[in-house]
Structures are given as structure tokens and as C-alpha cells.
């Protein structure tokens, strides 16, 4: 059975204004990502990988072109609507974890479900933290956790809203090798068990190779890397 299209991008261009003039970061990008596919976006620093990720997740508004998430136009609507779509479809894992420092691990994981008004938020969060091996760290604050542990909490949080698409920005960038491997394993396990589409920006070739597809970003252009 043909898989649905999770993300569709056509003629995506993004220009930013700086004090030296206009700078075009993305130049007419076209791509399609199928449901439950895992895709790595690789490329050198400053090539526009993170910008693309931000646009795909609706964190920023592109200059021209179209982005569709599950056939829903995602590039033009207001911040209000994009936030609603994000809440419905999207999960995030960041290089610098981005846990809320004033919240305990469990409270961080509960957040997405709470935002949706889910009454079982705590129960679900406990289950997820158990899945990432942190059931003994529920009430710890982020600054009481190691980097690896913080990223595991972040992964639990990302999956708390049952996202259809998970965006990961250098998820192992701040971790040592051992913790990195653990995180990668978690990401892919969850990706497979929940059928989530995984879109990942990474410098790590090993990690990239584990994905179904690799897209190379270079000078604002995206090309498919043949495996």
C-alpha cells in the first residue's frame, strides 16, 4: 500500500535581510517525505539545514513557495494556526535539549499533553519516562540531570503528544558517544514503534546512514544522496 505524504515542499525560497543586504538561504527547494520515513538532512555549517528544519516545522515563515503537512497548507497561515498544526502533528528534539529549567522532568514531559488539555498527562508522562529509562528521575530538575538524561527527557517530551512527525536538530550534538548512541537508539525505536516520520538535521554521518534517506544541503540547494 502506498504510504501517505507527510511533508511536501515545492519551490521553497527563504531570504533574510541583514545589514549587508538580502541573503537568500534557501533557493527553490522541492522535496517529499512519506509517512514514517526517516530522513537525515546533512550539510556543512551555515548551509541552511536548520533554516529548512525551522520552516518545515512552521517555526518561521518562508519567503515564497509552499509547504504542506499531511496535505495541509503550512507555509502561509498565521502563527496561531501554525501553532495548532504543530501541536497536532509535530514533535521536537533539540541539540541543547531546551527543557524548562523551572519544571521537574515529569512536568516537562507532561507539557504537550497538558497544552492539549489531556487529563492523563501525568500517567502518559510517567510511562514515557519509563520507556527512556528515567522512571527514577521523575522529580529531578533539569540542572540535576546529566546531558544524556536531559536529552532523554526531551525525547520523552517530544513523543508525549503522539506526533506524526518528529523534527530533531542535531540531537546528539551535545552528547558523548555512549549517550549519543543511547539517544539514537531511542529515537529510532520510538520512530518505528509509533510509525512517526523522523526528520533530522545532523553532522553525524553514522547517524545519517541509519536513516532511510539522506538529503544534502549545499549553498541553499537540496539534493538526494544516493545510498
Amino acid at each position: 500500500m502506498a504510504r501517505n505524504t507527510a511533508i511536501k515542499v515545492s519551490n521553497l525560497t527563504h531570504t533574510v535581510t541583514s545589514n549587508t543586504g538580502n541573503l537568500t538561504i534557501l533557493k527553490g527547494i522541492n522535496m517529499e517525505i512519506k509517512e514514517s520515513e526517516s530522513v537525515a538532512i546533512v550539510g556543512s555549517s551555515g548551509s541552511g539545514k536548520s533554516t529548512l528544519l525551522g520552516l518545515l516545522a512552521g517555526l518561521d515563515v518562508n519567503t515564497s513557495g509552499d509547504i504542506f503537512l499531511y496535505d495541509q497548507e503550512f507555509s502561509s497561515p498565521s502563527e496561531e494556526q501554525r501553532a495548532l498544526v504543530r501541536g497536532q502533528y509535530v514533535g521536537f528534539v533539540f541539540q541543547s535539549f531546551h527543557l524548562l529549567p523551572s519544571l521537574q522532568a515529569i512536568e516537562n514531559v507532561m507539557l504537550p499533553a497538558e497544552l492539549k488539555g489531556d487529563k492523563d498527562a501525568r500517567k502518559k508522562a510517567e510511562a514515557l519516562l519509563e520507556k527512556v529509562g528515567l522512571s527514577h528521575r521523575l522529580t529531578h530538575y533539569p540542572n540535576q540531570l546529566s546531558g544524556g538524561e536531559q536529552q532523554r527527557v526531551a525525547i520523552a517530551r517530544a513523543f508525549a503528544s503522539n506526533p506524526k512527525i518528529l523534527f530533531a536538530d542535531e540531537p546528539t550534538g551535545n552528547l558523548d558517544e555512549e549517550n549519543g548512541k543511547l539517544i539514537i537508539k531511542l529515537l529510532f525505536d520510538l520512530n518505528q514503534s509509533q510509525g512517526t516520520t523522523l526528520v533530522m538535521v545532523t553532522h553525524d554521518n553514522e547517524l545519517a546512514k541509519m536513516c532511510d534517506r539522506q538529503l544534502v544541503m549545499s549553498a541553499g540547494q537540496l539534493t538526494e544522496k544516493s545510498l
Binding site: 516545522a57 517555526l59 502563527e79 496561531e80 501553532a83 495548532l84 504543530r86 501541536g87 497536532q88 509535530v90 521536537f92 531546551h98 524548562l100 523551572s102 507539557l111 504537550p112 497544552l115 492539549k116 517530551r157 503528544s161
Partner: peptide, 16 residues
């Protein structure tokens, strides 16, 4: 600042 940005990525709308 970061809390709001994170909440937004998690789907919190500006209205909310």
C-alpha cells in the same frame, strides 16, 4: 523567553 519559544514549538498558540 525560551520557555515561551519552547511552548510554541510544543503547539501553544499565541492566543493561548
Amino acid at each position: 523567553l525560551m520557555q515561551v519559544a519552547i511552548l510554541k514549538t510544543l503547539g501553544a498558540t499565541p492566543k493561548l
